[in-house]
């Protein structure tokens, strides 16, 4: 079934089409959910909420712009809604500007580990890091989406980079020790 047809059938609330759409996109969207949520269970909750929103509002998708972009945006929004209101204990003045580079060996750091330390970030840090680094939003856009200032977005990003960097470095040194 081509995408266009699938969307049309989903607009008519056909359960088969909904299932096909889910099969086609659950992987991509669950990837997003895992990055934006603190753990797998909440990621699954968010994926579920996102799909329900998509199915309910698919009638409003007018075929302008990429469909995948549209559903990704809904998914990101689902997570934002849930986590943006939680306050972050802001320690913005502490060691803000540091070298954001890490020594990495040729061997890559496992994806599971990277995902885990992203999930462990405080909610707002995690959102800002994802939006800026992985999804390419500007600080201005992030500020609007999260209802914070540009400056807060920048300092949140710097803080999250530092936290992640420390964890990656600790991981690498542990690994080297055992070699």
């Amino acid at each position: 079934m081509i995408l266009q047809e699938l969307i049309e059938k989903c607009k008519q609330q056909s359960p088969k089409a909904q299932e096909a759409l889910y099969k086609q996109y659950s992987g991509v969207l669950f990837g997003i959910c895992l990055k934006y949520s603190p753990n797998r269970a909440e990621a699954e909750d968010n994926l579920q909420d996102a799909f329900i929103t998509i199915f309910k509002r698919i009638g409003q998708y007018q075929g302008k712009g990429s469909f995948e972009g549209w559903i990704k945006r809904i998914t990101v929004n689902t997570a934002l809604q849930k986590y943006r209101k939680k306050k972050v204990f802001d320690i913005s003045n502490e060691q803000q500007i540091e070298d954001a580079e890490v020594d990495v060996e040729q061997q890559t750091i496992p994806l599971d580990f990277l995902l885990k330390i992203i999930q462990e970030l405080p909610d707002r840090y995690r959102l800002v890091f994802n939006l800026y680094v992985l999804d390419g939003y500007s600080h201005k856009e992030i500020a609007e989406m999260l209802g914070i200032s540009d400056g807060t977005s920048k300092s949140n990003l710097a803080r999250s980079r530092m936290i992640l960097k420390k964890k990656v470095e600790a991981y690498i040194s542990e690994r080297n020790k055992d070699q």
């Binding site: 954001a100 580079e101 992203i118 680094v133 980079r161």
Partner: peptide, 22 residues
């Protein structure tokens, strides 16, 4: 052998387009 890498790149490489099965 070790290379310097920006922390953002490290994450982008693996997580930018990553998919998972729920």
């Amino acid at each position: 052998m070790s290379v310097k890498k920006h922390i953002d790149e490290l994450f982008k490489e693996q997580l930018q387009n990553f998919e998972a099965a729920p």
